[in-house]
Amino acid sequence: MQRSDLESAPAASADWPDQIFDLLKAYNVKQVALVPDAGHSRLIKRCLADNEMRVVTLTTEEEGVAMMAGAWLGGQRSVLLMQSSGVGNCINMLSLATLHRTPMPMLVTMRGDFGEFNPAQVPMGQATQPVLEAMGTLVNRADKPEDISACVEATLKFAYNTYRATATLIGQRVIGAKTFGKD
């Protein structure tokens, strides 16, 4: 078994990570908070290579929610990149978006979703959307590559134009479900 089999990552030919990067640039996103996920690895590389973006690697995802509140206080747009398991770490901190009406767009790569192999990913993966919605987040789902750009743009627009937490969930069907060689 290869290490790459343990994680879900898009095929090298997929261009949706580049589309997301172009949207982050178009919407003037300056702070990119993240806990790495294999599904976001290409997007993270693009952000790291951009001199106008500040990439902040977090120890836990809720730090990114708080950071987005600070970025907005200082007049900068931000985004939080994470895997679905990280959404669980954000629950209470998302109160900030509701209390202060702060734009907090989140781009979430799904695990525990379409064709998951790892049982440990399933509980939070299945709870990701209800948990976000319970905290007042507007959620879009992209389960086809051609849906991702439109969903991410809607997520950015809705956050920055109407001042709230928003999320695009990028389905495991798009990213690729790994089976540890047991399919």
């Binding site: 300056k30 702070q31 500040r54 902040v56 809720e62 730090e63 990114g64 929610v65 708080a66 950071m67 987005m68 509140a69 600070g70 970025a71 907005w72 206080l73 200082g74 007049g75 900068q76 931000s78 209470n92 901190m93 109160s95 900030l96 209390l99």
Partner: peptide, 19 residues
């Protein structure tokens, strides 16, 4: 802050980077 326990320092970081 009235809540967001554990988040004060990170709010400071986001603001410090922006300003």
């Amino acid at each position: 802050l009235w809540g967001a326990m554990g988040g004060a320092a990170m709010i400071g970081l986001g603001l410090a980077i922006a300003q």
